[in-house]
Amino acid sequence: MDLDHFAVRALVAGLGVAVVAGPLGCFIVWRRMAYFGDTMAHSALLGVALGFLLSIDLTLAILGVTVAIACLLLLLQRRRPWLTPDTLLGILSHASLSLGLVAIGAMAWLRVDLLGYLFGDVLAVSRADIAIIYVGGALALAGLAFFWRPLLAVTVHEDLARAEGVAAAPAQFAFMILVAMVIALAMKVVGILLITSLLIIPAAAARRYATTPEAMAALAAILACLAVVLGLGASLRFDTPSGPSIVLAAAGIFAVGLLPLSRWRALSASLFRNGNSS
């Protein structure tokens, strides 16, 4: 593979993120945590600002800030039970995003491509970015595999899992870290504002065809990869922004899955007949 070509680098980076985002996104969907993922993603911009301010590695800064926001959320939920999680998420999500924007704006000496962070700039990924994506992605997948059974058990019923000896808290904490990792990795590809869609759309699209959680996770990874290939292809062909193109491709795959199967059978049958007659 020729990593010298920007399109190849983009594809390699996109596939690396997709393979992790698919399975992890299943848990986001199963646990109804789409908004939670969104909040963590939004706070990533604050991580970017902090990274520049302290001149530390951006990926690490994003990891730190997203995990801190998630912890703050859990703490507030416990201490202020009269605030619904939904409201808290809304507050934290937009407060952290705004703080990130203000902080980046305040650093007048800094020239950053804000749109690139918000919506992704996969066509600009470097070899180093790819290395980070693959090492981090492999770690995240390994972590997900390790915590798979306890996490699934806790997702089905936390009390039942705990009563049967599953250590719920470590699994839930690990899950938060994994989401933070994927956000840090996926930011380059689809951007802060669109990360959640790469997590939930392939998972939602995979649900229909899966009969076990494991099959759904594997299929979500495949569909996410398909979305990356189609989206990047369209982006190069029609010169559309890459991140949004990938998300649109995923949404298209999801939409195809909404059609009733009987309709598909009828459609393919009629195509087949036409093919024969002509």
Binding site: L152, A153, L160, A161, A204, P213
Partner: peptide, 20 residues
């Protein structure tokens, strides 16, 4: 009240071996 979300594909067999 154990309600399993329809978005989670789970067979009886898999539910039986959920924690072990």
């Amino acid at each position: 009240r154990l309600a399993i979300d329809p978005v989670l594909p789970l067979s009886v067999k898999r539910l039986m071996t959920l924690t072990a």
